[in-house]
Design a protein around this nucleic acid. Structure first.
Lengths: 139, 139
DNA sequence: GCTCGAATCACCCAAAAGTATGAACGCCAA
DNA sequence: TTGGCGTTCATACTTTTGGGTGATTCGAGC
């Protein structure tokens, strides 16, 4: 792309105007500098992104053993009903399935799920399941 | 760097020669194009380098506890890339996050995820994570 | 050279999940 | 009895997931 651009510019300059070698030189230098700067920026960008994605997911330390700790239920203010939903969620059931098993509405399950996520400070159910296991909220 | 270069060129053109706006325009356009091309090239370069250097040397250190039973991988025809996605999925990441961390498109992650679910014979990612753990594909 | 599979990505669509807000109802304790 | 809390549900909306199809590239093996 840049090669073609450069040649085009030079060609038109030469044909339609008059020969200005220093202009061509300037343009070429700028093009080269920008290329280098761009490549450097690209490399840096990807490196930064890498670092972010590498440091974050590595943080959670692997727990040796999961010790059920019911006290966390009280501490986190997880209500009995919410815990019930959490257990079924951890079993891989969908909200719809949970609703049917508990004879509740899908909206109710969503509400419970949202509250659970809030209390566990997570965004997704996969994270909730993990965190719940870490905290000993599940079998 | 490129900003300074551009300003310098324009300054000298204006002071020492005569005003040629179209030249400035040309130069600016070229600079912009080269920057874009350069950044793209930089990203691509690092990505290619990553591919070559990551597939083999970076995997072993984590494999100690991540792949306790590789035989299931072969048996289930889980490809290396799919396994990579599976691991990140099990960490609670969304498809979008996985895509960013692996420098892939969201669509690609979806494709991998679908293949994983098919091979694991599950419907939801929560189930996939469980089954993968049961089969010893994860930590 | 040709084929084949992996890996990548796109587009489309439907379902599921998640967010926000509001609103009932019952229970219980201050 | 009043206020707080848990439970239930709705409506509306956005985001995420899942499923299907097809295209491309690239490398390995025949």
């Amino acid at each position: 792309m840049l090669g073609v651009s450069y040649l085009l510019i030079v060609y038109f300059q030469y044909r339609l105007l008059f020969v200005q070698h220093y202009e061509s030189l300037y343009t070429g230098i700028i093009a080269a500098l920008c290329c280098i700067a761009g490549i450097w920026a690209g490399v840096e960008i990807t490196r930064k992104i890498q670092k972010k994605s590498e440091t974050l997911p590595l943080v959670p330390p692997e727990k040796d053993h999961l010790v059920p700790d019911p006290s966390n239920l009280n501490h986190l203010n997880i209500s009995p009903r919410e815990h019930e939903v959490l257990v079924l969620m951890a079993k891989g059931h969908s909200n719809q399935e949970i609703a049917e098993q508990l004879f509740l509405s899908l909206n109710t399950i969503k509400t419970h799920a949202s509250n659970i996520f809030m209390k566990l400070d997570v965004q997704r159910r996969t994270q909730a399941i993990q965190k719940a296991k870490e905290l000993g909220l599940l079998a």
